[in-house]
Design a protein around this nucleic acid. Structure first.
Lengths: 136, 136
DNA sequence: ATATTACCCATGGAATTACTAGGTAAATAC
DNA sequence: GTATTTACCTAGTAATTCCATGGGTAATAT
């Protein structure tokens, strides 16, 4: 499993915002109910997205979240890397991984690196706007 | 993380057997020491490989394990799928996954399916023999 | 002031992963 | 036929990660 609930929720929510447009702020509560996601859990995800500048957030009545760019400006890769903390297929190539003692002679490393690159290219080549179109 | 320690150990061990050739049986103990893997943990992995017919195993002195085909007859995909129990990138597309209630309207499902196919093709396109060549 | 919203910090339960322990069965060596 | 060497089997445990909850504080609007 390379993408957990957290990343999948983040994607769903971003798609949801993309569908709603950038006119209004939408409160977390509304999104959580519409998507059937625990409000509290979603909170932690929204905060990450907001702090990273993926969303605008305003407090108080009439507040909530909204996108601050057009859907085609968000790659799926950027959303997943942010919420999952990376997309490496194996721990060997993950960021901050302890250097493997077999790095020098590891037969598999070049393969893992090619895989990581392939996955990264895949997700960077898809945007929120593409996902919106999927089900037309 | 799509491939855990288990799958990576399995690969390393299979590479190791491929390097040693098919003349002799090699006892688990020797492989575990050579690779620096816990003997007991490796045992559980070897049993899976053996039961699936990836290796021949014989008991007693002079016994151990050995490959029963040429290295190019083993795809990396077959080894990983066996030891990891599948290679799905998300739980939504994993074997035996509970049908998602949003299957009908999920914007992301086609993407996950394309990703799974890409990963599967990647691993099925590489064999043990290819890994042996990596470091020449 | 009050209501509504986002933000922050800590905690708990469940599931998975990685590894350990202790035995049984099969084959060979003497 | 006993001892040794090997694979095989079942169970348990420790550590980690994942998913979610609880209880507050800060900012904005009416």
């Amino acid at each position: 499993m390379i993408v957990s609930t957290k990343g999948r929720y983040a994607l769903r929510v971003m798609v949801c915002f993309a569908q709603r447009g950038r006119e209004e702020y939408i409160p977390l509560k509304e999104i959580a109910e519409a998507e059937g996601i625990s409000q509290k859990y979603l909170e932690s995800i929204m905060t990450v997205l907001s702090k990273a500048g993926f969303l605008d957030a305003v407090h108080g009545k009439g507040g909530g979240y909204r996108l601050n760019r057009d859907p085609q400006e968000y790659t799926i890769g950027s959303i997943l890397k942010l919420t999952e903390g990376g997309l490496s297929a194996v721990s060997c190539t993950a960021q901050g991984a302890a250097a493997c003692s077999r790095t020098e002679c590891c037969q598999a490393k070049p393969m893992w690196e090619r895989l990581d690159k392939m996955i990264d290219d895949f997700f960077e080549g898809i945007t929120l706007a593409d996902l919106l179109k999927e089900n037309e």
